[in-house]
Computed example of a mutant assay.
Amino acid sequence: MFRGIYKVISAMLVQQSKVDVASNNLANVNTTGFFKEILTQKALPAGELVREEKGSGGESAREVVGETNLGVVVAETAMDATPGVVKSTGNPLDCAIKGKGFFQLSDGQNLFYTRAGNFTLDSEGRIVTPSGLFLMGEGGPIEVGDAQEVTIREDGSVIADGEVVGVIALYDFERPSFLRRLGHSLFSATPDSGEAILQESVSLAVGALEGSNVNVVEEMARLIEASRAYEAASKSFESENETAQKMVETFGV
């Protein structure tokens, strides 16, 4: 009797999740190195329609008379690891990765990965992110000391007062879409993503940053579509609820 209500509720939950994903993507359209999320859905397993009757002796008899689908649910929210558009900034410590790969960062204990290359120097002469995470090179955190002039070359070499003091290391993953999102364009490895793989070569766009890969028009279209679908499902819920109430009043529970 309540199959219609189950289907409508599951549809509303899916559409609400689509609204949340699209809204979050749009909120990060200007976030450096942000990867958008994509929601996928799947159908619930089919349920059996059973007719249950009692025989003359009081025994119970069950008969399967068919199957019914109970609607859809969210399968997963996956990350789209397609690189974003690279834009020039003119800052000598800004750099964008050409092609695949991630910068490796550390807080002294844990390792993180990012596509956001907006780096700066801390008070101890180390190249860091705005939040203070160390940029890792092939031999550990890259330090420039009290150098007066610091630049980064396209091959990842870090030059301090004319001398090479380190080389930026880039890493990639077998399945980067399965990295764990930590916020602020940071990611960490997971069993599904695989371990970080050191890249043999480094190619950077210096004095530039990679923007998000969010397409505003596409996300607005998804947001409008999901909002309208949610509204339609909500009206269907009201109709199904009224029908169920009438059936209860007429035939009892």
Score class of each variant (00 low, 15 high):
residue 1 M to Y: 11
residue 2 F to T: 08
residue 3 R to D: 15
residue 4 G to M: 10
residue 10 S to A: 11
residue 11 A to S: 10
residue 12 M to Q: 05
residue 12 M to P: 00
residue 16 Q to E: 10
residue 17 S to H: 03
residue 18 K to E: 09
residue 18 K to D: 02
residue 21 V to L: 05
residue 22 A to M: 04
residue 22 A to T: 04
residue 23 S to L: 04
residue 27 A to K: 06
residue 28 N to W: 01
residue 30 N to H: 13
residue 32 T to P: 00
residue 38 I to F: 07
residue 39 L to V: 04
residue 40 T to N: 09
residue 42 K to C: 12
residue 43 A to G: 04
residue 44 L to C: 13
residue 44 L to R: 04
residue 48 E to T: 12
residue 49 L to T: 09
residue 50 V to D: 07
residue 54 K to G: 10
residue 55 G to N: 14
residue 57 G to V: 02
residue 58 G to N: 04
residue 58 G to L: 02
residue 58 G to R: 09
residue 59 E to M: 03
residue 62 R to L: 14
residue 64 V to Q: 10
residue 65 V to F: 03
residue 70 L to R: 01
residue 70 L to V: 08
residue 71 G to I: 07
residue 72 V to S: 08
residue 72 V to T: 14
residue 74 V to C: 02
residue 75 A to F: 13
residue 75 A to M: 15
residue 75 A to S: 14
residue 75 A to Q: 14
residue 76 E to V: 14
residue 79 M to G: 07
residue 80 D to E: 05
residue 80 D to F: 00
residue 82 T to Q: 05
residue 83 P to W: 13
residue 84 G to V: 07
residue 85 V to K: 12
residue 85 V to Y: 10
residue 88 S to E: 14
residue 88 S to W: 05
residue 89 T to S: 09
residue 90 G to A: 00
residue 90 G to R: 07
residue 90 G to E: 04
residue 93 L to R: 11
residue 95 C to F: 13
residue 97 I to G: 03
residue 98 K to L: 12
residue 107 D to I: 03
residue 107 D to T: 06
residue 108 G to D: 13
residue 111 L to C: 12
residue 112 F to A: 06
residue 118 N to Q: 12
residue 120 T to Y: 11
residue 121 L to R: 03
residue 122 D to G: 03
residue 123 S to R: 08
residue 123 S to M: 08
residue 124 E to H: 05
residue 127 I to G: 15
residue 129 T to R: 06
residue 129 T to F: 04
residue 131 S to H: 07
residue 133 L to T: 05
residue 134 F to N: 09
residue 140 G to K: 08
residue 146 D to I: 05
residue 149 E to L: 07
residue 153 R to A: 11
residue 154 E to V: 01
residue 158 V to E: 15
residue 159 I to A: 10
residue 161 D to W: 02
residue 162 G to Y: 01
residue 163 E to C: 09
residue 165 V to I: 04
residue 167 V to G: 15
residue 167 V to Y: 13
residue 168 I to C: 07
residue 168 I to Y: 00
residue 173 F to V: 12
residue 174 E to R: 13
residue 183 G to Y: 10
residue 183 G to K: 06
residue 186 L to R: 11
residue 188 S to M: 12
residue 190 T to K: 15
residue 191 P to K: 13
residue 192 D to L: 14
residue 194 G to M: 09
residue 194 G to I: 02
residue 195 E to N: 00
residue 198 L to A: 11
residue 202 V to S: 05
residue 203 S to R: 15
residue 204 L to H: 11
residue 206 V to K: 00
residue 208 A to V: 01
residue 209 L to Q: 09
residue 213 N to K: 14
residue 213 N to G: 14
residue 213 N to P: 09
residue 214 V to D: 07
residue 215 N to W: 04
residue 217 V to A: 11
residue 217 V to K: 02
residue 217 V to P: 05
residue 218 E to K: 11
residue 218 E to I: 03
residue 219 E to S: 06
residue 219 E to G: 07
residue 221 A to D: 12
residue 221 A to R: 15
residue 226 A to S: 00
residue 226 A to E: 08
residue 228 R to H: 08
residue 231 E to V: 02
residue 232 A to E: 15
residue 234 S to T: 11
residue 234 S to Y: 02
residue 235 K to D: 09
residue 242 E to G: 01
residue 244 A to L: 13
residue 246 K to P: 00
residue 246 K to R: 11
residue 248 V to R: 12
residue 249 E to S: 05
residue 250 T to P: 01
residue 252 G to C: 06
residue 253 V to T: 14
